[in-house]
Design a protein around this nucleic acid. Structure first.
Lengths: 136, 136
DNA sequence: CGCTTCATTGACGTTAACGTCAATACATGT
DNA sequence: ACATGTATTGACGTTAACGTCAATGAAGCG
């Protein structure tokens, strides 16, 4: 499969095998198939074999970032929908806007939590360094 | 139990029942007992009944914030240890400092992710609002 | 052409983080 | 004293997010 997909001279790789993506993102192929079964990604097929385009590669990036931020796959699924929402009709755009705003509120709340935690640890850090000076 | 623990005239409540805390933090008593079984909190007992002090109440706050940030209970357990570390010996303080720094790096990385996600959504928000103007 | 190497598809196992339920024990208001 | 309400301790169930394994198939290599 490598031979088929690999085009070393190209600037931007367009197609990816499941193994390539698993390797690049340091996840298992099982995980990728699992995400597909959940509808988070929708690779093409060549026969039975999956072939991934840039779109799904990007979605994988978003999925993994979502996970790092502590979101469930269901939440991430909602989040991904925002990226390919229909913008042709005003009602759809309006709906999208509401969902984006809801999401933004969540992320901003999380950011506040995060900043509080960071501030606390920085305080501990400062105190610990003080202690070390005294103890030296 | 309320009658025993409740001292309405006091400024700072010192003792809490499991139900009070469950209510205040909007979690189940089962969850609180589960956290105790994991060693995250260590309430006193009056007979068989749990009695919580401010310390464990604070720890509950930290646990829940940790969860909102997407950390596992094991990670949170590590995190909590930072709060009651031994600072009397320089080697302990040194060790604490290292762990605090590690934690800080994680949180800062997460903050970067978060800010990226927020920026993307803000861009979508801007674009959607543009669309709505055009479509109006 | 046989061998070896991925890829796919079930099916089943696993871990974390609780929920649910049953049996039992206190404690309180009337 | 009794009914009611709350607490505790198992034991078992559940969901999410994969891991593991077995059987099968297509593809390239010498």
């Amino acid at each position: 499969m490598d031979k088929i997909l690999a085009k070393p001279a190209e600037k931007k790789q367009e197609l990816f095998s499941i193994a390539e993506l698993a390797d690049e993102f340091d996840i298992s192929t099982r995980t990728i198939r699992f995400y597909e079964s959940k509808g988070l990604i929708t690779p093409d097929r060549v026969g039975t074999t999956r072939v991934f385009r840039r779109r799904d590669r990007t979605r994988l990036l978003l999925i993994l970032r979502g996970k790092r931020l502590g979101f469930s796959l269901n939440e991430i699924s909602d989040y991904l929908e925002l990226y390919d929402a229909d913008q042709t009709q005003a009602t759809q755009t309006q709906h999208l806007l509401e969902r984006v705003n809801t999401r933004l509120a969540m992320l901003r709340a999380q950011k506040t939590d995060l900043e509080t935690a960071i501030a606390e640890l920085e305080e501990m850090q400062g105190y610990a360094m003080e202690q070390l000076k005294k103890q030296a």
